[in-house]
Each structure stands twice: as structure tokens, then as C-alpha cells.
């Protein structure tokens, strides 16, 4: 599945919403995260709204609107693809390709945001976001 599409993120949300047991250990999360994928033929951005133990809304958006999320993660498509390829290969993100490590290293994918309370949510709900992204392994398997 093409990762730079709304359909991909909707599929991840459906996967999460169908398996709340994966998220219960992390507890409820309320945040709006945005992911920005830079690419030559036009950037792709998506906003993912988490509420409680669910993803309630996925919206394809402009890069400018992505900045209005609690925080946004900004990087080239190749970096995002490498992250999702790793998830697919290992069942979940591994090594330095977890979203936390990628944002911490900041060389490919950067954590950004205007509101400090919003940016804090990246760390506060980090494992919920990671579980959501790790769903790519199951989505891809299901799609295959």
C-alpha cells in the first residue's frame, strides 16, 4: 500500500480501532498528530486524531494545516518509507527506526510544532503513536 495516501492511514486507524487490547496497556490518549512526507511531486500531509483508545479522525491536509496539530513529524518520503519497511520486516519498529529514535536523532524526521503543550504530547503518548504506526505490519499483511 502506498504510504503517502489517506487510505493507508485510515487502514492503520481501522487496525487500531479493531484491536483496542493493543493500546490498553498504554491507556487513553488525546492528541492530534500530523505526519508530513516531503516528495518531489508534491508534499503529502495527514492529521491523525486520537481520542481515548481510538483514532477518531484521519484527514489529508496541507503542510500549513499540519502545523496546527498538537505536533507534526516532518521528513522526506524516503525516511518514512524506510521506517514502514522496517515495521513490515520486523513486525514493529526496531533499532533506530522507532518514531522516538527518529525524532530524537532528528537527522531525517523532525518533531515540530508551535504549541509547547502540544509538542509535549509526542513524548507523553509516544507508545500509542508507535503502536498505531506498527499496525502497518498487520495492514500490509492483510492487504497482501
Amino acid at each position: 500500500m502506498n504510504i503517502a495516501t489517506k487510505a493507508f492511514f485510515v487502514a492503520l486507524a481501522n487496525e487500531l480501532n479493531a484491536h483496542p487490547e493493543q493500546f490498553k496497556v498504554h491507556g487513553e490518549a488525546d492528541m492530534v498528530a500530523a505526519l508530513v512526507m516531503r516528495k518531489a511531486d508534491g508534499d503529502f500531509a495527514v492529521r491523525v486524531a486520537f481520542e481515548g483508545l481510538r483514532v477518531e479522525d484521519i484527514k489529508e491536509t496541507s503542510v500549513a494545516e499540519a502545523a496546527a496539530a498538537d505536533y507534526y513529524l516532518d521528513g522526506p518520503l524516503a525516511a518514512w518509507q524506510a521506517m514502514f519497511d522496517d515495521i513490515l520486516a520486523n513486525g514493529s519498529a526496531s533499532g533506530r527506526l522507532t518514531i522516538n529514535s527518529l525524532a530524537l536523532l532528528g537527522t531525517d524526521i523532525r518533531l515540530r510544532g508551535d504549541d509547547p503543550m502540544g509538542v509535549d504530547k509526542f513524548s507523553r503518548f509516544n507508545q500509542t503513536l508507535q503502536e498505531y504506526l506498527d499496525g502497518a505490519a498487520r495492514v500490509a499483511v492483510a492487504a497482501g
Binding site: 509547547p116 509535549d120 513524548s123 507523553r124 509516544n126
Partner: peptide, 17 residues
């Protein structure tokens, strides 16, 4: 470390604000 990180981020969020 991941679980502790989330807790610690709440504390820092309180202190900062």
C-alpha cells in the same frame, strides 16, 4: 525506558507550564 519516558514527559509538561 519507553514507559518511563511517557511518565517523565508528563512531569516535565507540568513543570514547564
Amino acid at each position: 525506558f519507553r514507559m518511563a519516558m511517557q511518565d517523565e514527559a508528563r512531569h516535565v509538561a507540568y513543570g514547564t507550564m
